[in-house]
Design a binder for these strands. Structure first.
Lengths: 184, 184
DNA sequence: ACGGAGTTTGAGTGATAACTCTAATTTGAA
DNA sequence: TTCAAATTAGAGTTATCACTCAAACTCCGT
């Protein structure tokens, strides 16, 4: 992958893989499907990726980064902003959201590496939410528990969005936010 | 399936399917594996089930029904009982819970039939939660919205349990229940 | 324009999946 | 006891999967 052609092909494969995961799920994302749609033969695919899994992990990493509302960790965000960021992600990029959820479910049985990646990312998000809750006056141990409940519940919202594209993400997300901010 | 032999074989197949899902996950639960372990030939399997999917759905449905606080739908269940039932399902049968979530996500991409089934099941659950909330004094339109938020958030809890087997399902589920019951 | 490295081709491999089919056997109601 | 229906056997079918490979072709620094 040092020539222009290889880099372009690689990009086309990744884009196709992402679209296929969103449309067909992990199960429907086969080498044949990727290659047909990307206009590439299996030999080329395996020249650029050592396995199908490697391509999928690459796509998933992108999806996970896309969920991050504040990649620079400035630490000035409010819980409302964090929730808004997630809502925006879900509504603007439902395909990536679908990948993120689908991966958590199907991909985690055999693949410890992938599983660890998702869990670490989840913990990072919870920490960010917890910090924001503390800044809003909720004491530490309680803030952490509420953050974990909130992030988990928001993932439930994402899960349902995968099932029902017309699901009212914003209303439910705001309700969950309100619950997290309520005084004990 | 009218003779004793058929009923017994069916039971053995379902039990084996349940065990295999727990031990090997959905991916490792093949017709061959089921048949080998149940001491049955594929012909017999397909005499009793029209597809592998039917057997799996049956197993999952049985597990969910097994913890139903009001199996006859007499309308006597409280929201607390409904939440408890789901928590029990998640903690007692985490592997089936994983399949349940997995069916909702991956299984419903191509399979319109399955997708409809999952959505209908979700709607039924929301309706029961909403009825229970009304019985507890929360007015109708609000009760429905809260029920939907609660059920969705609980699915988020289930989703996270798939990722992290040590996740404290009960604490978070109770927190979500408390939020749903709070006065407006 | 040379030539080694990068890229592409596409038929092919071997494994394994879900599922079918027909004939033989067993069941249980009358 | 009889016999139609239920059940079972198990080899076979069809499909599809991830992946390979040797040969041809393209790129680009020199």
């Amino acid at each position: 992958m040092r020539y222009r052609a290889g880099i372009e092909t690689r990009g086309r494969i990744l884009e196709t893989t992402r679209a296929l995961i969103a449309e067909e799920g992990l199960e429907g994302t086969t080498i044949k499907a990727i290659c047909d749609r990307a206009g590439v033969r299996p030999g080329s695919f395996y020249n650029l990726f050592k396995s199908k899994e490697e391509a999928i992990i690459t796509v998933v990493r992108e999806a996970i980064n896309a969920v991050d509302p504040d990649p620079d960790h400035r630490g000035t965000d409010t819980v409302g902003e964090l929730v808004d960021a997630y809502v925006r992600f879900l509504t603007d990029q439902p395909d990536l959201a679908s990948v993120y959820i689908g991966l958590a479910v199907s991909g985690s049985k055999n693949n410890t590496d992938l599983k660890g990646r998702v869990i670490r990312h989840h913990e990072g998000r919870v920490a960010r939410f917890a910090d924001a809750l503390v800044r809003e006056g909720i004491p530490e141990p309680e803030a952490n528990r509420r953050a974990e409940t909130l992030v988990t519940a928001l993932n439930g919202v994402a899960l349902h969005l995968v099932l029902d594209a017309s699901f009212d993400v914003e209303t439910h997300a705001r309700a969950l936010l309100g619950d997290a901010l309520e005084p004990a």
